[in-house]
Amino acid sequence: MSFALQAIGLSKTFGSGAGGVKALDDFSLDIPRGGVFGVLGPNGAGKSTLFRLALGLIKPTGGEVRLLEQPAGDPRALRRIGSMIETPRFHPYLTARETLVMLSTQSGAASPDIAGWLARVGIADAADRKTKGFSVGMKQRLGLAAALITRPEVVILDEPTSGMDPSGILEIRALIRELADRDGVTVILASHQLDEVQRVCNRVAFLAKGKLTAVEDLSQTEEKLRILATPQAAVLDILGKRGTADGEAVLAAIARPEAPDLIRALATRGVDVVEARWVGGDLERAYLFHTRS
């Protein structure tokens, strides 16, 4: 198996002495190539620090991080990856198009499809506007184009949809899946949006306080219908083995087409359905479980 990113006993401490912050603490993780790999964890868990180390922006205090099996910061490996770390910032005096020209030139990219990428991330209309006036979401979109303009084999996206409007989130989600499925790009995605992660990621790693707490395969956890209804016992009875209690609610392991029949059956049995919604498999609970202090 070949790896997109490997962390081996990686540590990073900011500051020193009593005031030092251990952002990563003897952290080890292998991210294989292929598919979409999610990196989850609460604020301050060390996700961005991991990416900054991999990109050679900062140096580890201990251990090692490798990108495409090369040591971090190796310019040849870096040229095969694209990245967007936190909210991207740009030179305000350049337009979106000029920003991409400059960045792709710096990468030595031969004939980059600048207009194509501006359109694909949905800012073709603003291509010739200076980035000074861009909204957060527009910067986010331009940052994605900047990460992808060199047609990288691996792309690291740190909260790519934070600050984006709902339709933007859907577009980017589709784009990420397309990158992985059609273009064969390995996507490493940090996000706080669990339903997004649930939909696009194949595997996820959970981080808490600079440590890896778990890695899960998401193709195995499927989405469930969370039903809040009274009496709960009746719902469990109807679902049989496919139902599990979740607090006052019930998680139903059923496929989407079965939902109308189930709700009709509940109604005929006199069950009062207060709420029924699809939840991201076990990810929410797995998240809380693995990142709890």
Partner: peptide, 16 residues
């Protein structure tokens, strides 16, 4: 300029 606008992170991965 790249400190002021925080743009090094866009560039240092692209060239040495």
């Amino acid at each position: 300029t790249d400190y002021r606008w925080e743009t090094w992170r866009l560039q240092t991965p692209r060239n040495s």
